[in-house]
Amino acid sequence: MNLERLLVTLIFVIIIPFLGIFLGLLYKGFDRKITAMMQSRIGPPWRQPFRDIRKLFMKETIIPEGAVPWVFNGAPLIALAASLIALLYLPLGPFEPVMEGFGDLILILYLLAIPAVAMAMGGLASGSPYATVGSQRELVLMMSYELPLAIAAVTIAWRFETFSLGTIASTPVWNLVGPVGALGLVFIAVALFTVLPGELSRVPFDQAEAETELAGGLFVEYSGRNLGVFYLAEAVKLVVVGTLMIALFFPHNLSSWVSFGGPEIYGFVILELMADIAFFLLKLLVIIFIAVSVVRVALARFQIDKASYFYWVPMTLLGLLGTVLVVMDGAII
């Protein structure tokens, strides 16, 4: 690796976390605004999450008596760090993953699991019965949605014969399969779309927080800075899962269809780059709108056993069916 590459990587490693947090909070704000508008409310302004964060960081951080302080304080940091690291391994729009070559899809799957485990750890360490129940639910839910998620990831990787996200994102997977495989991919995409609200703990899969049942569940004892960090982790996770979805299924770039021309810097055409970034942000917004906002307002919270059943039986079967179709398609070709 030459020095220039190292320098660029370092700069990106510093910039991307801030960008991730900013985008996450921005999309969280849009999600809240759109949700409110769909419920015929005016809703908070889109910059409300930024204000929330500012306020949370100003507030006192209380550590309950029954808590294990180092786990209780460490859990939010682990959750945030894991989500931010995951962002480094994901292709953001027209850019290759910053850490391309150091990790792949499997690593992403593990990094996605860490925030959930950290939240459960923090909940268990806070010593409140509500948080304990919430943590148990979070773990059960995590075990449930991992199955369809893993199936989707493995199928895509099998088609590309690599786990490298850079390679996967360079060509839309739809171009590699025939009509039967495309149908299979639709099934897998649907299964993965249902994983998104579970991954982000939003209704109908917000059993771990379940405001009316557990009064905030695993976050019940968290306050001030710790809660703020969890809030940031959730916001970043929103971008991470959205980007993963884009990388696996919709890595299309505007520049591959339309040519803009114009000046170039480091081999990037400026206009095309800007168009691609805008297109990426739009794709992210659409995915969040469909998988988070609409689902969140159109469904009631499931009981935990029914949520598990939903992932383990219908969604896993759907994913497996998709896999079989994709494999069949490969055999035909």
Binding site: M38, Q39, V203, A210, T212, V297, A298, L299, A300
Partner: peptide, 16 residues
């Protein structure tokens, strides 16, 4: 009731 089962959309609808 809708709010209690996590269905806030219908809470807002009925209250409207």
């Amino acid at each position: 009731a809708a709010h209690e089962i996590g269905f806030d959309t219908h809470l807002h609808f009925t209250w409207k």
